[in-house]
Simulated scan of single mutants.
Amino acid sequence: MSYCTAIGSMQPAERKALHQQYHDHYYGFPLHDDNELFCRLVLEINQAGLSWETILKKEQGFRKAYSNFDIRKVAAYTEADRERLLNDAGIIRNKLKVNAAIENAKTILALQKEFGSFEKWISHHHPLSKEAWIKLFKKTFKFTGGEIVNEFLMSTGYLPGAHAATCPVYKQVLQQKPMWTVTTKRS
């Protein structure tokens, strides 16, 4: 069952509304803001081993804890910040995931310096097969396994599959011209 159809049968209403909001307004839509791309990467990393619902419920806690995903601020976090994050019940308190967020922010700063933005770095490599994307992300970032990379790229419009073709949101996503609809490398 696809995410699109699963939402229809979710209960209670609060749970359904939480997923519906993400599905209808965020999932699969292209992102062009580096901080929001970083946000999605951090959220996908934190979802590993947990339900997406858990992450959606904690999104505001993540935003508060990680300086609204300001890449420069997170990259400058100190050991005291790591300890603060590990004691913050509003997020997932996993040392590997906390460390990955901070180290990945530093990596993104380097990519921004070289490519102009995180988005341009991703676009520079487009299109790749799912397997090639996974290999690239594993080489570049911390805590990025196959499902994390797949969901990150699908949720940000670089890989297809976020919505069923019969889903009304699918047409809205297509109007935004996600990168998966572009088959050649940009120059």
Results as ranks from 00 to 15, higher is better:
173 V>E: 06
104 N>E: 09
52 W>P: 14
128 L>S: 06
54 T>Q: 08
60 Q>V: 11
137 F>W: 12
22 Y>E: 03
154 M>W: 01
28 G>D: 03
107 T>L: 10
62 F>N: 14
100 A>L: 15
74 V>Y: 03
126 H>Q: 07
14 E>P: 07
161 G>S: 08
160 P>I: 00
177 K>V: 01
174 L>M: 05
106 K>F: 10
44 E>L: 07
149 V>I: 09
36 E>M: 00
158 Y>A: 01
46 N>W: 12
160 P>D: 01
43 L>F: 00
68 N>L: 05
135 K>P: 10
124 H>C: 09
63 R>P: 13
180 W>S: 00
16 K>D: 15
70 D>N: 08
117 S>W: 11
55 I>A: 14
14 E>I: 04
81 D>A: 00
145 G>C: 12
119 E>P: 02
5 T>A: 11
139 K>F: 14
157 G>A: 06
142 K>H: 13
29 F>R: 12
64 K>E: 11
54 T>L: 03
3 Y>V: 10
133 W>L: 02
26 Y>P: 02
18 L>E: 14
122 I>M: 04
164 A>N: 00
92 I>A: 02
124 H>A: 10
87 N>D: 11
5 T>R: 14
35 N>T: 11
131 E>A: 14
29 F>P: 11
88 D>C: 01
40 R>P: 00
86 L>C: 12
5 T>C: 13
82 R>P: 07
18 L>D: 13
133 W>N: 02
175 Q>F: 09
87 N>R: 04
89 A>L: 13
50 L>D: 09
95 K>N: 12
174 L>R: 07
52 W>D: 15
67 S>A: 15
19 H>W: 04
78 T>C: 08
110 A>T: 05
165 A>Q: 09
124 H>K: 12
172 Q>Y: 04
45 I>H: 06
92 I>T: 15
110 A>M: 12
124 H>D: 07
56 L>S: 02
76 A>F: 12
173 V>D: 00
140 T>W: 12
168 P>R: 08
124 H>F: 05
170 Y>D: 09
166 T>F: 05
68 N>Q: 15
99 N>M: 06
34 D>E: 04
161 G>Q: 06
140 T>L: 08
120 K>S: 15
187 S>G: 09
22 Y>G: 14
158 Y>D: 01
152 F>G: 05
143 F>N: 12
122 I>S: 00
107 T>P: 12
150 N>P: 01
78 T>V: 09
168 P>T: 05
12 P>S: 14
185 K>L: 15
53 E>V: 05
154 M>L: 07
7 I>T: 07
162 A>Q: 06
168 P>A: 04
108 I>Q: 11
163 H>T: 02
83 E>Y: 08
134 I>D: 03
28 G>R: 01
14 E>K: 10
147 E>S: 04
6 A>F: 04
165 A>W: 06
82 R>K: 13
109 L>V: 08
22 Y>M: 13
150 N>E: 13
53 E>W: 00
46 N>I: 03
63 R>L: 06
39 C>A: 15
180 W>R: 04
128 L>Q: 03
62 F>V: 01
163 H>R: 12
66 Y>S: 13
21 Q>N: 02
119 E>H: 09
23 H>R: 08
107 T>W: 08
137 F>R: 03
101 A>M: 04
84 R>S: 03
